[in-house]
Write a protein that binds this DNA or RNA. Structure first.
Lengths: 242, 242
DNA sequence: CATGCTATAATTGTATACAAAAAAGTCAAC
DNA sequence: GTTGACTTTTTTGTATACAATTATAGCATG
């Protein structure tokens, strides 16, 4: 509908060296992380093309990349929709995240430099500021980026790339299943994590992280039982990839 | 150069429902797994298009998917090459694989059905047969697929998709650094793994798997020191993404 | 008025044309 | 014969046109 900026070349918004599909990808990714795009939303190629002022070619690339990351589901001949993980899938995603986050925490405890600890603290302060001023969207995104920064400090690119996918999937899950208005991933816990890292206390760091992930999973268990009159939710266990 | 089959529609080779870029992707993926494509090989879009009888559009999709899995490196404006992991990157990849394989083995010990154990055994027998008859390429591919089947049995799609990327990267590493003619991933060890799984002996299964991965890593250490007159290898630690 | 069929519109899949960038080749100067 | 500027060729990036597929609307029938 409304063209947001006709990004084209010389787009200073983010970096300038990135190619166009990177920019489109990042915009959609952020929209999902900030929960401005809800699970199940259809992503029409032509509409997105008009919005970003590029051809479908570029949109298609961005969507397939999001598709690899499982953040959107690409249904052959039927277009892309924002992923809508079932409760079972959500559990599998959280499990995978436990596996990765454990490894990341151990690496971070070994590798973290003082400068990086300060970077982490600054990010959590920003996150806190967002929630304080009521900007929940940006807060949620920064919360996710905190976990990505951890994976970056762990200094293992394959794990980082996997983590990127898992973090955005978790954001989707939260968007779908978070019941109350409670902060889904409190910054207090993030500060505690940083302290454990600073003290190179691996067991504590890992245990805090697992506890952190328990919070997400608890919400799944709760919502597992509540009744709903939403057909889509009721039949969400019916795998319908096509 | 030579068109291999003009796949187009009604291609019965693999499945028939898969889309064209899936087929191209699978062909290139297999070629890498079978080490018919060596690290560093340039992947020209037009040539590949002629080979598979499709347009660059399809090739491009397949290459970006491989790029997402880090199996090929996409250099902006300079095309795609088969990834050529440095020793450090190789270590990071093997580390990530330890993390995933450990989780996979634990899940498999919990979940594996008798039928699936038999599937695993059959696959290793096939692998053995390949090596016995001297078809090293197919043997290596089946060896990789054994690990993918494990991840499938673990029943965690995100982990499986990550494993897919890691297994092919490991195959690349082996292609690059394997010195002797020794089997890189002996089927004996695979049979032992299956026995541990059948006995639901998690600690043993995990320990066998770690040992299995040690073999790959050992080769890195060895090759780390040997001299070479190959410029590309000598400067392989120089990160040159563009 | 619900159901099923047909025609039409909308959307995705693929090929191709052209623009932009990089690589390779040419040739002069030292 | 090596170096460096310039030209040509090749290759990649993007837009667009058309084909194939799916969704929608209209209409007839029970």
């Amino acid at each position: 509908m409304s063209q947001i900026s006709e990004l084209k070349k010389s787009d200073t918004k983010r970096d300038g060296k990135k190619t166009q599909d990177d920019i489109v990808y990042a915009h959609i990714f952020d929209a999902i992380l900030e929960q401005r795009l809800s699970p199940g939303t259809k992503l029409n190629e032509e509409s997105l093309g008009e919005i970003f002022g590029v051809s479908r070619t570029i949109i298609r690339r961005a969507l397939s990349r999001l598709g690899y990351e499982q953040v959107v589901v690409l249904r052959p001949n039927r277009g892309a929709v924002v992923a809508c993980p079932s409760i079972e899938e959500a559990r599998q995603i959280v499990f995978a995240r436990r596996v990765v986050e454990k490894a990341v925490m151990e690496l971070v405890c070994d590798n973290a430099q003082k400068k990086q600890l300060e970077q982490l603290r600054q990010m959590v302060r920003d996150e806190q500021a967002c929630f304080d001023r009521g900007d929940r969207g940006a807060g949620i995104r920064l919360s996710g980026e905190f976990h990505l920064l951890l994976a970056e400090i762990a200094n293992n690119p394959p794990l980082l790339s996997f983590q990127r996918s898992l973090v955005s999937l978790c954001s989707l899950i939260i968007a779908q299943y978070e019941s109350g208005a409670k902060s889904h991933c409190s910054y207090d816990e993030h500060f505690e994590l940083i302290d454990a890292i600073a003290g190179k206390d691996k067991p504590r760091a890992v245990s805090l992280m697992m506890h952190h992930l328990d919070h997400i999973e608890e919400k799944l268990s709760l919502d597992d039982e509540i009744a709903t009159d939403d057909l889509k939710a009721i039949f969400s266990h019916v795998r319908n990839p096509r």
